[in-house]
Nucleic acid binder design. Structure first.
Length: 854
RNA sequence: GCGAAAGUGGCGUAACCGGUAGCCGCGCGAGUCUUAGAAGCUCGUCCCGUAAGGGGUGGGGGUUCGAGUCCCCCCUUUCGCACCA
C-alpha cells in the first residue's frame, strides 16, 4: 500500500489480479444459492457513454453485494452486435459491417475493463457470430413447425431514411424509433411471429412480476397489448348477401347507431360498390385518404380532421331493424377490430364529431344516472346546455332509453344480455380484441440473422433443414445504399438448391429484426459455447430466471415484451419451465448534460455535443470515483444531471478513507494486534458511540441494497467515515479496545465500499492485512449487531401545542411516566406552560412528548 | 384530450408506521497552513430577526395532540398513450 492514493495504479493492479485469479468466473454449483444479475447488453456503437457507465455500475454494485453475501453470482456481458448503424457505416465508409462492429467491440470491451466491471468474461457473446445467430434461426424453424411464424403480404411501416421495415413498436408515434424520421407505409411480403397468440398470457402473467417490475412498465405493456372486451355485430347490407361485421365495446348503445362506418381500406367497399354510380367518388376518396396517410408527417401533431363519404349503401341494424347509411371514413382503422364500426354519435366522442361535420342524426339511448339509489333517479336531459343542444357525447354507462325491449336496463346488464341475444340470433358474438399486432421480423438488410427459408419453384416455401444451420451471411457484401437488401445482390448467397427436391431455388434475402437476438441472449450466457443447442436446459434451469435486470426505460415495451413472449414460447417447446424470465426489473434514469448555449438538460449524445467521454473521466478521477459519484448523485431511477464538480466530492471521500486506512494499516495489519472482542466495560463512551455508528451503518446499507437505494448507502458510508475521523485517536496511543473499534469500523467501511468502488476497496483490504483479495478469503458482508446499534441515550423533543419548545435526555427504556415528568419539569418547557391549563400530555416512547395546553 | 408519477435550501438529495424537516454531498462564506496558488484541515451555510422569537416542504382547505407524509380542490412539471370503436 502506498501512502498516497493513485487510482490509475491501483485500478490496473486489481483489474490484472482479478483476471489472474478468475475472480468473477462462476460455474453451476448446487450447494450455493445462485443470483443472476443482468444488465441490458450494449449495442457496439463504438464508445461507451455515461448511460452505460451508470447502467453497469448499478448492476455491478449488486453483483458484488450478492457475492459478499455468499451467492453464486452470474454477471455476464455480451454485444447486441447486429443492426443498422454497422450498415450505415459500411455505406458511408466503404468498409464491412463485421469489421466495423468487431473493432467497436474491441474498443468498448477495453473501456468496460478499465471501468473494472466484474464480469465473467468467458461468457461473453456477440449476436453477429454464427455460433449465436444459428440459434436465432433454429428458434425460427421451431416456431415455423408450430405455426408460430407465417408469411403474408402486408402494409409495413417503412423508414425512408434507413430503408427498412419497422415493427409497430419501433414506429410508435409514427416516427422511426432510431432516427425519428416519419414512417411511411409500403406493401411487402413479410414474416410474422404470432405474438398475438400470447396476448392473453402476456397480460395474465403480469401478476407474477407485479412488485418486482416498475408499475409504469407494466402499465405501458398493458396499454400496448390493449385488450378490450366487446362484441362483433353483423349488419346486413340491403339488397345484397353481404354483411358488415363491426366491433363494439358498447353494444348497449346500438339503438343509437345512425351509420355504419368502414375504414377506407375495407375490402368490402370495392366489392359492394361494383356497378354503383358512386363507385368513382368513393374510390377517389379512398385514394385521397391513402395519400394523406402516406404523406402523414408527424403523428405527434394534432389529430387529422375526420373525413368521410356516404357510399350509398344501406345497412340494417339487426336489433332495431332500422336502416342506416354506410359511410367510409378516415377515422376508422383497418388494423383494429374489424375495420368497421357502428357510429353512435350520442355516446361516442369520435362519432359525435363525425356526425356534427356531416350532419348525421344523433339519437340518445343512454340516460345518465344521477342518483343510483333512488328509483327513477336518472336524467334524460343529458348533456344539454341552455341552448338545448348536446355539446358532447355522453360516454358513461347509464340507463337504456329509446332501445325497444331493452329500455330500462342498466348498461352493465345490457352489455351482457344484448351480446347473448346477438349470439342466439346468429348475428353477433362476444369478442376480445387486442391492439397488439403480430411481430413483423423481416428486415431488408444485410447485417442481421438470415431468415432460414428457401423458395423453390416447385415446392414453394421450404424451411432450411436444421442440419444446414447456420445459414451464414456472406463474408463480404456490396453496400450501395439503394434500398435493396445487399443479400439480394449476392448471387452466391441467393442461389441454392431446394432441400426437398434438389431443384433450383433461391434463399430468402431478408434478415431478422435484431430484437430477436435480444429476446433470448441471456439464456445463452448460461451455456455460451454450446455447439449443439441454444443452451442446455439444465444449465438454464440452474441460472435462470434473472433475479435482477437493469436497463433503460426505453425498452419498456419492445425488448421487454418480446423477451417475455420468447420465454413463454421456449416454455412451450420444453426449454424452460417458468413463465417469466425476469423477476425484478430496475429502469435506470437518463444521464443528461447541459446543451451548450442553452439551459436545457438533454440525454448525452454526440449530435448534441453534450457527451462526456467515460475514458476522460476515468483518466482524470479514476473508475472508482466515477462509479461512486454516478451512484451517489441521484437515486438510480432518477434522471442524473451530469456535473463534474460532484466527482470531486467522490474523490475527496475516497482519499479520506484511503488516508485513514494508511494511518492505521501498520497497527491493524500486525497479527499480534488481532485480539478477541474486549469486554464491554473496556470501551470508552466514545468507542461505544463509534461501534454504534458502525453497526447502524451496516444495518442501513444492508437494507438499502434490497431496494437498490445506492445514493443513501453511499451517504451512510460517508457518515461512517466522518464518525471515524471524529474519533481522533492516534495509532500510537490507542488502547486495545480502541484498536478493536477502529478495526471493526474500518473493515466494515472497506467491505461495504466494495460494491461501489471495488479497486480501492481491494487495495485497502490488503492494506489492513488481508491477503488473497476480498473474494478469495472467507470474507462475508459484515453482520449488524442489533444490541450494538441501539442508542444508549436519546434526545427527546418536547413540544407544547405541537411546537418544539425543549429537549430532554432519556434512555431507550425510560418509562412513559418518567418522560412525562421530565418534560413537565424542563425549565424551558415550564416557561411555555406557565399560566395555562395542561389538557393532555402525549408521550411517544423514544420519540417525543407533546404537551397540550389552553 | 386521457392516464400515471412527482413538486422539499442556490443545486443533487435525505426523512422508519403521521412524531425534532433538511442527513450526505456539491456550491458558497470565514479561518488555518503556504512565498503564492492549489490541495488539505477547522468552522459556518433554509428564510426573516441583534436577540427572544417568528415563518417555512407548489397553492388553498380538511382530519389529528401533531402533517413533507393521510383526505379534498387547484396549479406546475415529467413520463406514457393519443382517432384502438
Amino acid at each position: 500500500m502506498d501512502e498516497k492514493y493513485f487510482p490509475e495504479k491501483i485500478e490496473e493492479k486489481w483489474q490484472q489480479r482479478w483476471d489472474e485469479t478468475r475472480a468473477f468466473t462462476v460455474e453451476m454449483n448446487d450447494e450455493r444459492e445462485k443470483f443472476y444479475c443482468l444488465e441490458m447488453l450494449p449495442y457496439p456503437s463504438g464508445f461507451l457513454h455515461m448511460g452505460h457507465v451508470r447502467n453497469y455500475s448499478i448492476g455491478d454494485a449488486l453483483a458484488w453485494y450478492k457475492r459478499l453475501r455468499g451467492f453464486n453470482v452470474l454477471h455476464p456481458i455480451g454485444w447486441d452486435s447486429f443492426g443498422q448503424p454497422a450498415e450505415q457505416a459500411a455505406i458511408k465508409r466503404g468498409i464491412q459491417p463485421r469489421d466495423w462492429t468487431e473493432e467497436n467491440i474491441n474498443h468498448m470491451r477495453g473501456q468496460l475493463r478499465r471501468l473494472g466491471i466484474s464480469y465473467d468474461w468467458r461468457r461473453e457473446i456477440a449476436a453477429h457470430t454464427p455460433e449465436f445467430y444459428k440459434w436465432d434461426q433454429w428458434f425460427f424453424l421451431k416456431m415455423y413447425e408450430r405455426g408460430l411464424v407465417y408469411r403474408r403480404m402486408s402494409q409495413v411501416n417503412w423508414c425512408p431514411k434507413e430503408e427498412t421495415v419497422l415493427s409497430n413498436e419501433q414506429s410508435s408515434g409514427g416516427v422511426c424509433w432510431r432516427c425519428q424520421t416519419p414512417v411511411v407505409k409500403k406493401d411487402l411480403e413479410q414474416w410474422f411471429i404470432r405474438i398475438t397468440d400470447y396476448a392473453e398470457q402476456l397480460l395474465a402473467d403480469m401478476k407474477e412480476i407485479e412488485g418486482g417490475w416498475p408499475e409504469r412498465v407494466l402499465t405501458m405493456q398493458r396499454n400496448w397489448i390493449g385488450r378490450s372486451v366487446g362484441a362483433y355485430v353483423d349488419f346486413a347490407i340491403q339488397g345484397t348477401d353481404a354483411r358488415v361485421r363491426v366491433f363494439t365495446t358498447r353494444i348497449d348503445t346500438i339503438y343509437g347507431a345512425t351509420a355504419v362506418v368502414l375504414a377506407a381500406e375495407h375490402p368490402l367497399l370495392a366489392e359492394l360498390l361494383e356497378g354503383s354510380s358512386l363507385k368513382t367518388d368513393v374510390e377517389q376518396f379512398v385514394e385521397r385518404v391513402r395519400a394523406t396517410a402516406r404523406n402523414r408527417t408527424n403523428a405527434g401533431e394534432e389529430e387529422e380532421e375526420k373525413e368521410g363519404i356516404n357510399t350509398g349503401l344501406i345497412a340494417i341494424n339487426p336489433f332495431s331493424g332500422e336502416t342506416l347509411p354506410v359511410w367510409a371514413a378516415n377515422y376508422v382503422l383497418m388494423e383494429y377490430g374489424t375495420g368497421a364500426v357502428m357510429s353512435v354519435p350520442a355516446h361516442d366522442e369520435r362519432d359525435y364529431e363525425f356526425a356534427q361535420k356531416y350532419t348525421l342524426p344523433i339519437h340518445q339511448v343512454i340516460a345518465p344516472i344521477t342518483h343510483r339509489e333512488e328509483p327513477g333517479g336518472f336524467d334524460t336531459q343529458l348533456g344539454m346546455d341552455q341552448s338545448r343542444e348536446m355539446r358532447h357525447a355522453f360516454t358513461d354507462y347509464g340507463l337504456l332509453i329509446n332501445s325497444g325491449e331493452w329500455s330500462g336496463k342498466l348498461s352493465e346488464d345490457a352489455l351482457r344480455e344484448m351480446t347473448e341475444h346477438a349470439e342466439a340470433k346468429g348475428f353477433g358474438e362476444r369478442a376480445v380484441t387486442y391492439r397488439l399486432r403480430d411481430w413483423g421480423i423481416s428486415r431488408q438488410r444485410f447485417w442481421g440473422a438470415p431468415i432460414p427459408v428457401i423458395y423453390c419453384e416447385r415446392c414453394g416455401v421450404v424451411p432450411v433443414p436444421e442440419k444446414d444451420l447456420p445459414v451464414r451471411l456472406p463474408e463480404r457484401a456490396e453496400f450501395t445504399g439503394t434500398g435493396e437488401s445487399p443479400l439480394a445482390s449476392a448471387p452466391e448467397f441467393v442461389s441454392t438448391s431446394c432441400p426437398k427436391c434438389g431443384g433450383i431455388a433461391r434463399r430468402e434475402t431478408d434478415t431478422m429484426d435484431t430484437f430477436v437476438d435480444s429476446s433470448w441472449y441471456f439464456f445463452r450466457y448460461c451455456d455460451p459455447r454450446n455447439p449443439l443447442a441454444a443452451f442446455d436446459p439444465e444449465r438454464a434451469a440452474y441460472w435462470t430466471p434473472v433475479e435482477q435486470y437493469v436497463g433503460g426505460i426505453d425498452h419498456a415495451v419492445m425488448h421487454l415484451l418480446y423477451t417475455r413472449f420468447w420465454t413463454k414460447m421456449m416454455r412451450d417447446i420444453g426449454l424452460v419451465s417458468f413463465n417469466e424470465p425476469v423477476k425484478r426489473l430496475m429502469t435506470q434514469g437518463m444521464v443528461t448534460n447541459l446543451v451548450e448555449g442553452t439551459n436545457e438538460w438533454k440525454r448525452m449524445s454526440k449530435s448534441l455535443g453534450n457527451g462526456v467521454d467515460p475514458d476522460d473521466m476515468i483518466q482524470a478521477y479514476g473508475s472508482d470515483a466515477v462509479r461512486l459519484f454516478v451512484l451517489f448523485a441521484a437515486p438510480p431511477e432518477n434522471e442524473l444531471r451530469w456535473s463534474e464538480s460532484g466527482i470531486d466530492g467522490a474523490v475527496r471521500f475516497l482519499r479520506r478513507v484511503y488516508g485513514m486506512v494508511w494511518r492505521w494499516h501498520e497497527r491493524l495489519s500486525d497479527p499480534a494486534q488481532r485480539g478477541s472482542e474486549p469486554e464491554m466495560e473496556e470501551f470508552t463512551a466514545r468507542a461505544r458511540a463509534l461501534r454504534r455508528k458502525t453497526h447502524q451503518t451496516i444495518a442501513r446499507i444492508t437494507e438499502d441494497f434490497e431496494e437498490l437505494h445506492y445514493n443513501t448507502s453511499v451517504a451512510a458510508l460517508m457518515e461512517l467515515q466522518n464518525a471515524l475521523s471524529d474519533f481522533k485517536v492516534e495509532p500510537q496511543d490507542a488502547s486495545p479496545a480502541d484498536v478493536y473499534v477502529i478495526r471493526e469500523a474500518l473493515e466494515a467501511l472497506v467491505l461495504m465500499l466494495t460494491p461501489f468502488a471495488p479497486h480501492i476497496a481491494e487495495e485497502m483490504w490488503e492494506g489492513l492485512g488481508h491477503a488473497g483479495g476480498i473474494l478469495g478469503s472467507e470474507v462475508r458482508w459484515p453482520e449488524a449487531r442489533e444490541e450494538l446499534a441501539r442508542k444508549e441515550e436519546l434526545e427527546i423533543p418536547v413540544q407544547v401545542n405541537g411546537k418544539l419548545r425543549g429537549r430532554i435526555m432519556a434512555t431507550p427504556d425510560t418509562p412513559e411516566e418518567a418522560l412525562r415528568a421530565a418534560a413537565l419539569a424542563d425549565e424551558k418547557v415550564r416557561s411555555w406552560i406557565e399560566g395555562h391549563d395542561v389538557l393532555k400530555v402525549i408521550v411517544v416512547p423514544q420519540r417525543l412528548v407533546n404537551i397540550v395546553v389552553r
